[in-house]
Design a protein around this nucleic acid. Sequence first.
DNA 1: AAGTCTATGTATAATTT
DNA 2: TAAATTATACATAGACT
Lengths: 195, 195
Amino acid sequence: MSKKPSLGRQKIKIAKIQIKNHLQVTFSKRRSGLFKKASELCTLCGVEIAIVVFSPAGKVFSFGHPEVESVTDRFLARKSNVNSSNLHLVESHQIASVPELNLQLMYMVNELEAEKKRSEALDQMRKDGQSQFWWEAPIEDLSLHELQQLKDSMEELKKSVDIHVNNIIGGSDRAPIILSSTGDSCVDNYIWLCP
Amino acid sequence: MSKKPSLGRQKIKIAKIQIKNHLQVTFSKRRSGLFKKASELCTLCGVEIAIVVFSPAGKVFSFGHPEVESVTDRFLARKSNVNSSNLHLVESHQIASVPELNLQLMYMVNELEAEKKRSEALDQMRKDGQSQFWWEAPIEDLSLHELQQLKDSMEELKKSVDIHVNNIIGGSDRAPIILSSTGDSCVDNYIWLCP
DNA sequence: AAGTCTATGTATAATTT
DNA sequence: TAAATTATACATAGACT
């Protein structure tokens, strides 16, 4: 009897899997692996994590820890706060769909990425020399020119922050979402977003 | 000489790491591992992923794939009806008259005075403790809460700027002004906010 | 904080059930 | 279609730099 022993795990190139069936299997396995890693990181380090995955099929998978509030409501809850400022928000009590929430999260992440790049550039400038740090100096020492630059910088910064807050909070200014919790054996206390 | 060979990777319980230093190392390693897994999943399966991690220190780490546009554009596509941002930074190619230019300079002087007072207050805060200087930190180090505070501060600043502008220029709805490049040593190419 | 090294724990590609 | 198997690739704990 020839028993063909498994070759075991084989090395693969990190490139888009072409065999569709194969891809589906890999996606499923690696997605759960990713979520498991995330949950471990949560537990080990006591951090809050949110993950959103848009599958090729258009499905949305997401992971959040530990409570819904920690990641999502931190945005949604600010609604009232923002309302009191000069943002023009339309009152609505429509309940957001989870995909919409995920879009918002995704948007937020991208915004954060953009800000990160921006700040990296600023960091670089900082490393290039102290002389350019007019924007770190006390305001009373600034020349008019510098003050204008400061103002412009702040406007730029504010604009981007504003846009993202506006879209996250104001873009769907509505009641928070109820997320169901699975009694999964692997993960207690993790709350999953149900697509 | 006793060379102590490494025990190699040891099994650990998935529970909050108590040794703080240890935790930091693990957080850093596993975070990067998680992001790597995520990027592989992106590539292998052609999916879009966003991850946000709030560290215990309040820092925010995030991962997004593939391009900012891919996700944000989807979002922005439906944002138009909601946007109505409170910030109207309008570019205009209208050339300001000299009287208007003077008004702007006047405005700047007033603004400078206001900022001077403001900075005195901030200076006082600075003396009270370094911990409050979240707004001096690079953006990527800001928590979402701090981002919100930053935004609010900027809202305040802009509001006062707007009031000044209204008072000085006349409070009337007028076309935004752009200062033409005057060759002036002090000011060139500034764009002004339309009140 | 970030990188190296070793030994070992884990994830998973390919296959089988 | 999904679960189990197996052998290997990869991740990482701990110690050190």
